[in-house]
Design a protein around this nucleic acid. Sequence first.
DNA 1: CCTTGACCTTCCCGTGACTGGAACCTCTAT
DNA 2: ATAGAGGTTCCAGTCACGGGAAGGTCAAGG
Lengths: 128, 128
Amino acid sequence: MNISDVAKRTGLPPKTIRYYEDIGLIRPARDTNGYRRFQETDAHKLAFLGRARALGFSIEDCRTLLALYEDETRASADVKRVAQDHLKQIEDKLAQLESMRDTLTHLVHECAGDSRPDCPILKDLARE
Amino acid sequence: MNISDVAKRTGLPPKTIRYYEDIGLIRPARDTNGYRRFQETDAHKLAFLGRARALGFSIEDCRTLLALYEDETRASADVKRVAQDHLKQIEDKLAQLESMRDTLTHLVHECAGDSRPDCPILKDLARE
DNA sequence: CCTTGACCTTCCCGTGACTGGAACCTCTAT
DNA sequence: ATAGAGGTTCCAGTCACGGGAAGGTCAAGG
């Protein structure tokens, strides 16, 4: 498979796939013409990475998860810890965004949104 | 006021304040020795920026909001539009993070987290 | 007067995870 | 022979700063 084939199969852009090789997440073989030649295992790894990224794991987490995946002697506790730490980060981020959303929803609701200059949003930001 | 004074008052790091000058959000005066000399209006603008950033507005949004704040002839509708667009972005991001959280919560719950290699988290990522 | 230490300045590099674009090579079909 | 679709590498830019180097300035103490 060439890069565009595996890109279609995994949903990852070719640029991203090249980047993942650059940082050592995958090591596709090369044809004599220099083209990357992807095996099934490469496609599988890329799909794995795509799903891990879709769950918001960082590249470094992905590297760890991939290594654990390939390690038959792993402890599931190690996987769980990575996932739990990441979940914690997401929950923190959620709390922060919810707080922003609540404040903004309130402010937007207060603002007339007409042609007059008087605006509670700006008043709040300026703490007038 | 020197930069560290206004940093204390606004809660923004000196680095951030210099950066805001760099990109033209503020224009503090200079003393003969080259030090920035902050007026009340500068401190006020920086506090405004700090609060807008805390609500998650991008720097470009902050630039727009600051310009609207200083424009006595603004229409509150223009402010409201910026805030509503931003609110929409936050709500989209929240939905995305909530989806990640739900999936991760489920997976973490399924995983024994012991010394055995069997792991539903990896199974899910690999779509085995 | 000299030194010390805190403060200030500019400048450059690094962050995360790519994306866009340039310049160039290779394959396939006409 | 050529056109077009693919592939390659490399460089720069994104966003909003933060770290750190190299050097100038200021106030206090000896």
